[in-house]
Amino acid sequence: MKLTLKIWRQKNADAKGKFITYDFDAASPDMSFLEMLDALNTKLIKERTDPVAFDHDCREGICGSCGIYINGHPHGPGKKAITTCHLSMREFKDGDTVYVEPWRAKAFPVVKDLIVDRTAFDKIQIAGGFISTNVGSAPDSHAIPVEKSKADEAFDSAICIGCGACVAACKNASAMLFVSAKISQFALLPQGRIEAKERVQTMVKKMDELGFGNCSNTGACEAECPKEISLVNIARMNREFYWAKIQ
């Protein structure tokens, strides 16, 4: 299939960057989007030009490193709940024009082309996204009883892969879905309750400091999240935050 690719090219963090148009006819509907980019890069390398830089690692939807804004959607159009590496070229038609952009947020500066620096997420995690425990051998299973429904809910939050699509999708570049998932995975479990009060405050504070926007309850994050993290998490984070402040 033949595609007109309009790809954001930017040499480095300080460079201005612009869209470059590539007429690419070696794409196949059997490729994944990243395989299509690989094919494009092979061609660019053969032509002795700079290949398009993009992030990827596992290519099976679990590491969270891939993330490209394609035709108005983080992780691309079509099927819901997928990462860019799971995006199939079947979602595109022969002759389509495809806009390929990096995540856009003040807190995620572009490193090169489609790669952005997501250190901001790490900083939020470092601010409180952990539990303090004595290291040693693994504790006995079921030493602390947890209700099955709570464990399931905590798991639903814990599957956030930190890809940043929520920030990319949000009109305000807000990180609330990510932060609320990272808070919820602990807030729902007894092990996490111990530090819950400090955690929600330090993580929200860090999130604000790093220049992410505020939540307008628009819901774009939930719609685009590859792991279907729900807005219920944001409501929970807000509740946790108010209680922590009142106490």
Binding site: G72, K106, K171, G211, A223
Partner: peptide
């Protein structure tokens, strides 16, 4: 604050499902 949080806009504007 929300505008400042995204200094560079997308070329193709969002078509995500929203309120």
């Amino acid at each position: 604050q929300n505008w400042v949080a995204r200094p560079k806009r997308y070329k193709r504007t969002s078509s995500s499902q929203t309120s």
